[in-house]
Design a protein around this nucleic acid. Sequence first.
DNA 1: CACAATTTGATTGTGTACAACTGAATTTGG
DNA 2: CCAAATTCAGTTGTACACAATCAAATTGTG
Lengths: 147, 147
Amino acid sequence: MDSLRLDDQLCFGLYAASRAVTSLYRVVLEDLDLTYPQYLVMLALWEEDHRQVKELGAELSLDSGTLSPLLKRLEGAGLVRRTRQTDDERSVRISLTPEGVALKEKAQGVPSVIGAAMALDEAELTRMRKSLDRLTASVNAYRDSIS
Amino acid sequence: MDSLRLDDQLCFGLYAASRAVTSLYRVVLEDLDLTYPQYLVMLALWEEDHRQVKELGAELSLDSGTLSPLLKRLEGAGLVRRTRQTDDERSVRISLTPEGVALKEKAQGVPSVIGAAMALDEAELTRMRKSLDRLTASVNAYRDSIS
DNA sequence: CACAATTTGATTGTGTACAACTGAATTTGG
DNA sequence: CCAAATTCAGTTGTACACAATCAAATTGTG
């Protein structure tokens, strides 16, 4: 299993599955004019509004190089507002606009469509999620240990 | 399980795991001066040399918009050659240079490092790969059916 | 043969990802 | 109290992804 031929069965599977899911979201989110990463940010804000860029980055494992332009696009679309915090001028607070809050209604149908497309039963879904979480943790720990 | 809160547990897990694995490859492939997608192309060519762009695209599910610039970078690095086919001037044949062939030796150690980092036993690895493959197939089929 | 449809790769434009760096603001150690 | 270190967001540069479009070459059909 250490050959260059079989090596990537899992890694490539992961890479392919991730792109497939993203491309499904592309179609499903077309109505909302959101990309998948933008949708993730909106999910985080619907969950808890008024977050620092840093907090969003920690939750989604994305850095400012990705989030800054993404948040500007969401601001351009009128979904969020970016305001400097008064007590700490370094940090920027991201808040939903009324339009951003309202978009949550339109997003209600998304999960069930995605769920239907995945066609996995509850047990397999749970098992997979756990495996993925452990995989991410292992891989990140290993990467940090060697670099 | 259809709430916006829980929706993305699996999808986000997939997204996060895929990025984590790619970031591990970034470190591991540093020595070879390859990105992960470039490594995938090299794997495909080590497996079978002299392939059309179209064939590589089919194997990796990547289109020419991704592959054309990527292959030019590999050509710039001296790893592959791009030649127009004489019998069909539309198609471009990608061939490994001696340097490209030689790089395979340096890549021998990659799979075991990745395998160690993932820390999954054989059974879980197999189960996960199968789940991912089925997931990809379901999701792609569903996407095609609605768009 | 003519010519419309298809195939193939390239190009353009948008949007992530992420490393590396910058600059301003804040915190901390002495 | 103040210089050094740290934090935070933003910017720059490189490299995917992928939709849309294009041009050239080939193929199928009448």
